[in-house]
Write a protein that binds this DNA or RNA. Structure first.
Lengths: 340, 340
DNA sequence: GTGAAAGCGCTAACAC
DNA sequence: GTGTTAGCGCTTTCAC
């Protein structure tokens, strides 16, 4: 177990002061007019012995940790998992590490996690915030921490966010069902005040309203336990036999919905047409393939990290918060077509 | 933006030395025989002003960061995502944070990531190691870092790992196909020397051998790009028309395989019976539902973190590395039954 | 151009 | 029982 060497060891070995080494290592040699020859000698030696600065000490001194805190609803949800993956890649490429956690949409848990992140001195925050966390975020911002939200935002909090056009997404999907001739269209969503869910409901309502159709909305609770989602949907579909189409507000609800439909032995789209939010393997491979509102995950991740890196690099000039809205893509498949 | 207070501020405010504060905060009051009255006064004040010790300084001093490095193949793969989620929960509950990354099974990338983790002074490593990383892990172990592997292990590296009984899993699945009357059973796997993949192939071979059946193995390359998996499978299935069953060696291959089968308009199980590794929504919801080898993800995560925490807490006594092997569960569904 | 030294906030050996 | 003090390894001001 070779002892870790420090900047002092290097300095002693080379008969130079540690200040000089520090300057050279931080690329400030030119600025400090350190001789090229010395720079080269130091660099060579450093590489030779494989010296790595202690990032902890560096962070303690500079107050920067080169770490980004990422908070998603649930890392095992495919939407968040892919976003996390893409953000991870981009962050590492820019010298940042990611610490992540799943909030479960739980305000209290999220508060604790924010505290943990603060403790660890993360340089910036990326999050899909749960409800009721406004105060904590505002406190963060007040202390000068960059925060970028995605998937949803908090109307009372003035910070950057990247979202999709939720309203148009469901409006468009609902219109598609109407155009196909469906008349009793249901919408299943989480009971939630989150912006994205509210817009999704609104888009659905708007589309129905424009055609004078009746609303059928089911709200389920957000929960890790699938049974708590499956049960109310089963109930709902059993009681509303007239429904001829259903739009699921999230991928998780969509997956659960498909399980219910399969258990009830309903035929898609003959008995019930289906559209779900988020496009992924379960929907693509389903028989029949399920029409889905595809979110541009790569674009979302790209935008999120770009916005955050900008803020991180330009801490000085407090720029105006940006809000970015991206388009979704309705992937039309058999599950939503009308059978003649 | 209120200035962060330090232990010195507390000490001054209370007219006590910072050592005393430190002892009290670290629960060593009893041991140091500090008066209960003082302890109470300090605790009360600390809570009142919301003082939080600077964990960076603490880490610098103690050499402990309370961080665990988690390396998976790909965080967006549902198997790894669920494991990560479970490990995350358990780790947080025990006061550890997780830094994670996806290795892409790329040795070079993994080396860089290990370096990053070392830089950040993680206390322990959890990883599903790619091939060729033996040296780096051995170096880690030599420096006294706890490393726990899962999903696979490195035969040349003597450290703890948690795995499933891969050999029996595929043996059993293959036997099931044979019992159903299938005779031309293929196995699709990643071209890999990793222990888990080798055992999976072996299990398949053993089962066939016992029944004197011919092997049909397709090896595809590990790649993020699905097309590079879909294409060879398409090719393979097109060229081997006699096949009547196929066993997919991982969930990702299984998903790709289903896409191919769907594109080729083969009927499951009439034209081709199917079994895949890993049980998740895509397989459960498929029509017909796909027989799958279910890994006990919770058990895996539990064991991994338990083993690691043990090592972390008992750094002194170098215990013998443990290897834990868990059982899988073959979920038999329609896709592998013989149609009469 | 280079070096000495202060200090980031904390812990722990040692002194009293 | 409590306080003094020496670092952990680094950056950066200021002096030469």
């Amino acid at each position: 177990m070779k002892k870790k060497l420090s900047i002092v060891d290097i300095a002693n070995q080379l008969n130079v002061s540690k200040t000089t080494i520090s300057f050279i290592l931080n690329g400030r040699a030119k600025e400090k007019r350190i001789s090229e020859e010395l720079v080269e000698r130091v660099m060579k030696y450093v590489k030779e012995v494989g010296y790595k600065p202690n990032s902890l000490a560096k962070s303690l001194r500079t107050g920067k940790s080169n770490t980004i805190g990422l908070m998603v609803e649930d890392i095992s949800n495919p939407f968040f998992a892919s976003i996390a993956r893409l953000i991870e890649d981009r962050a590492y490429k820019n010298g940042y590490k990611i610490i992540y956690c799943s909030t479960d949409n739980d305000t209290h848990k999220t508060q604790e996690l924010i505290t943990m992140f603060r403790d660890r001195h993360v340089d910036g925050y990326i999050m899909a915030p749960p409800e009721g966390i406004e105060e904590d975020i505002i406190a963060l911002l007040k202390d000068g921490m960059p925060v970028v939200m995605f998937d949803r935002h908090l109307p009372m909090v003035n910070t950057d966010y990247v979202e999709i056009d939720n309203l148009f997404s469901t409006y468009n999907a609902t219109r598609h069902l109407i155009d196909q001739g469906y008349k009793n269209i249901a919408f299943v969503t989480f009971a939630s005040e989150q912006t994205q869910m509210k817009s999704r409901v609104q888009g659905y309502k708007d589309a129905l309203g424009a055609s004078n159709l009746k609303q059928n909305i089911l709200e389920v609770v957000f929960n890790q336990n699938e049974d708590l989602i499956i049960e109310p949907i089963t109930d709902f579909l059993t009681k509303n036999k007239k429904l001829d189409a259903v739009l699921f507000g999230t991928n998780h609800i969509g997956t659960c919905g498909l399980k219910v439909i399969s258990a009830m032995e309903l035929s898609i789209p003959k008995d019930l047409a289906v559209i779900s939010f988020d496009d992924y393997d379960v929907f693509k491979l389903h028989s029949p393939p399920v029409t889905a509102i595809a979110q541009p995950v790569e674009e979302i991740a790209d935008n999120v990290i770009t916005v955050l890196l900008n803020k991180l690099n330009a801490r000085m000039e407090a720029q105006r918060p940006q809000s970015i809205t991206l388009k979704t893509d309705l992937k039309i498949r058999k599950s939503s077509l009308k059978i003649k």
